[in-house]
């Protein structure tokens, strides 16, 4: 087995196990309300933390273009709630700004 295959299998294992364990042991009816509130905030927090600071360096060595694209993404999805339209327009914008 090549070392890259071993790497892929190990990465898969350490990725899959944390995804599996909570699903095996946790169900809706045995969770207190406070914990439910906490868990309902997790998606917002995850998205916020993924976008900043990582997104500022989304396009290597061009933080200003990345910031403009992020702002455009926020604006477009605010006006029109469509992931596809936002994604297509922003990728075109990012490409255009880099070519200019």
């Amino acid at each position: 087995m090549s070392s890259i295959l071993l790497l892929i299998l190990l990465m898969a294992a350490v990725t899959y196990i944390p995804r599996l364990i909570p699903l095996v042991y946790i169900r809706a009816d045995n969770i207190p309300q406070k914990v439910k509130t906490f868990l309902s905030y997790i998606p917002y927090a995850v998205l916020g933390a993924l976008i900043i600071p990582g997104g500022i360096f989304g396009i290597p060595n061009k933080p200003w273009i990345s910031i403009i694209v992020l702002a455009a993404a926020a604006l477009i999805s605010w006006i029109k709630n469509s992931i596809i339209i936002t994604l297509v327009l922003c990728i075109v914008l990012a490409w255009g700004l880099q070519i200019l």
Binding site: I51, S66, A73, S77, I91
Partner: peptide
Amino acid sequence: SSLGMGLYVLFMSLLI
């Protein structure tokens, strides 16, 4: 690199 930036655009359009 613009396609790579799409990852963050996707996060943003899920959050807004």
